[in-house]
């Protein structure tokens, strides 16, 4: 990466990155999956869950981007996984073990069914 030379360059860079991302505007078929990977998440097994999700999505041929993120604050429900289906609001699942991860993929992502254990988002963002 070459250095950002000015504030204008930074602004341009932001637009570029923002487009690549799908915050609020998911790309057409891509499933966005985030795994809470702060210490609390990792301690509860998030690494394994992430690995499992990657393998399982590959296995099931789901076009998914799986990334790590920080902590949403719901420590009681770690590990946490957030899934954003195309054209949908993100949904957060708590207490995710391998069984639930499988269910998230098979029931929620593939079948589009609602599954139990959804954690309601209880906060406003700075943009709300």
């Amino acid at each position: 990466m070459s250095k950002v030379k000015s504030f204008t360059d930074l602004k341009n860079l932001k637009s570029e990155y923002h487009k690549k991302q799908i915050f609020g505007t998911p790309a057409e078929s891509l499933v966005q999956i985030k795994v809470g990977m702060a210490t609390c998440g990792i301690a509860s097994g998030a690494k394994e869950i992430k690995k499992f999700l990657i393998e399982e999505c590959e296995h099931q041929a789901i076009d998914a981007e799986i990334k790590q993120t920080g902590c949403l604050g719901y420590c009681y429900a770690e590990p946490m996984v957030e899934v954003q289906l195309p054209d949908s609001e993100p949904v957060v699942f708590g207490y995710v073990d391998k069984k639930r991860a499988k269910s998230i993929i098979e029931n929620y992502i593939i079948q589009g069914e609602e599954i139990e254990g959804e954690i309601p988002i209880s906060f406003k963002t700075i943009n709300d």
Binding site: K67, Q68, T69, G70, C71, S122, F123
Partner: peptide
Amino acid sequence: TKKQIRIALRNCGLIDPE
């Protein structure tokens, strides 16, 4: 469910910190 406002934690859980 919306008693919280995340300012200091705004990006936690949203972005990849790395």
